[in-house]
Amino acid sequence: MHAEKNTKKIWMIIVGCILGVIWISPFYLMLTNSFKTKKELFSDTLGLPKHLNFDNYVNSAKDLNVVSTFMNSLVITVVSVAIIILFSSLAAYAIQRTKSKWSGFFYMLFVAAMLVPFQSVMIPLVSVFGRVNMLNRPGLVFMYLGFGASMSVFLYNGAMKGIPQALDEAAIIDGASRWQIFTKVIFPMLQPTTVTVALLNVMWIWNDYLLPSLVINQPGSQTIPLTMFDFFGQFTKQWHLAMAGLTIAIIPVIIFYFVMQKQIIAGVSEGAVK
């Protein structure tokens, strides 16, 4: 029996190592090739760079207009995620605390929206927003709210099931309004879920290319994924600069993850216990 457990443990370690190598291989290729010249990248894609060529990062940052595009991506991501968190948590609170047939209907409506692919509504959505002159950054934020709310409401609704309604009743007895109950009692208890919602939406919005390309593809308002496409022209592909640009682009998301790591682990642990 003991030998069987050791065999299973060894196999789990082997499988874990294989999955780890598969997961980290794109990051290895991106990072190592970002320091190579174009000639070296094509001659030895998998190997380590012979010399650390930082010119790729300098040229990539210049071509990306990194300060402007970074600020565009940052503003759109922060505003979109903040609005998604606010409206999704409020919607989930209303659905969870209102016991009626309509609350169940609206909840199922949000869940069903998760199954609708963006490509199926892409053309009519852009057409409608174009008619009302909303093909701009505010319009993009509004679209992100629409596409991100369904999953966020689903997560918040599940978390609120573990919060006793007696807390609401006690706060009402103390004279608190519904808004005060939500902001002072309920929302602080949803911190692990809020971090999870924020992380998922930050990664999605920060790296999104398709929706911004349809809405704000104008000079001066482009995000990092949009300007990254400039490295891939009709007659040439600057992979060495693209690798450096991708490395620059993912740094903010990695920093955000490590800063919020404790809260993310707490949210996973809380979900496992429940």
Rank of each mutant, 00 (worst) to 15 (best):
Y156Q: 12
A91V: 11
K8D: 09
S34D: 10
N136D: 09
M143H: 00
N33G: 14
F105S: 08
Q191C: 08
A159Y: 14
A244V: 05
A113H: 00
F35S: 07
P164W: 04
R178W: 13
V197F: 02
K50D: 12
I205H: 03
P49K: 03
S73V: 03
I265A: 13
K161E: 15
G271L: 10
L41C: 07
I250V: 15
A244Y: 04
C17I: 15
I216V: 15
I18T: 13
E270I: 12
S150N: 10
P117N: 06
V79W: 05
L52S: 02
Y28L: 12
W11Q: 12
W102E: 03
Q263V: 02
F256S: 04
L46M: 13
Q180R: 15
I76F: 02
S89W: 05
M134V: 00
A166M: 09
W23Y: 15
M160T: 14
T45C: 01
R97V: 04
F231V: 09
A113T: 04
G271S: 15
F229Y: 14
T223M: 09
S103F: 01
W206P: 05
N207M: 06
I24T: 11
S221K: 14
N217A: 14
V75Y: 03
S80H: 06
K38S: 13
F229Q: 15
I172D: 10
S213A: 14
V116W: 01
G104I: 04
G162K: 12
N133L: 09
Q263P: 00
F229L: 06
Q96A: 08
I205W: 03
V116Y: 05
F187V: 08
G233P: 04
V268D: 02
M243W: 08
T227L: 06
L226A: 03
T69Q: 07
L145G: 07
H240R: 04
P252C: 06
I264M: 15
L135E: 01
P192C: 08
K9P: 02
I76K: 01
Y57V: 09
V253Y: 02
V126M: 10
V81L: 02
N201I: 02
A198G: 06
M1I: 11
T37Q: 07
A112V: 11
N65P: 01
I255Q: 10
L31D: 06
K161F: 09
Y144D: 00
P252N: 13
C17N: 05
Y93P: 03
P192W: 08
A272E: 08
I18P: 06
I24V: 15
F118M: 10
F182T: 08
A113N: 09
L140S: 04
L155R: 05
A272P: 10
L109F: 14
L115W: 11
S89C: 07
W204V: 06
L246M: 13
L74T: 13
I84G: 00
P117M: 05
G20V: 15
G47N: 08
F106T: 03
L140T: 03
I22E: 07
V78T: 15
W11I: 13
W204G: 05
V141R: 00
S103G: 15
F235H: 14
L135D: 01
Q263M: 11
K101E: 01
F232A: 12
N6F: 10
K184M: 12
L64H: 01
V259M: 06
L214S: 07
G267P: 03
S152W: 05
G104L: 08
L214P: 00
N217K: 03
A242S: 15
D44F: 01
V268S: 05
K184A: 12
F27D: 06
V128P: 02
V253L: 11
R178D: 14
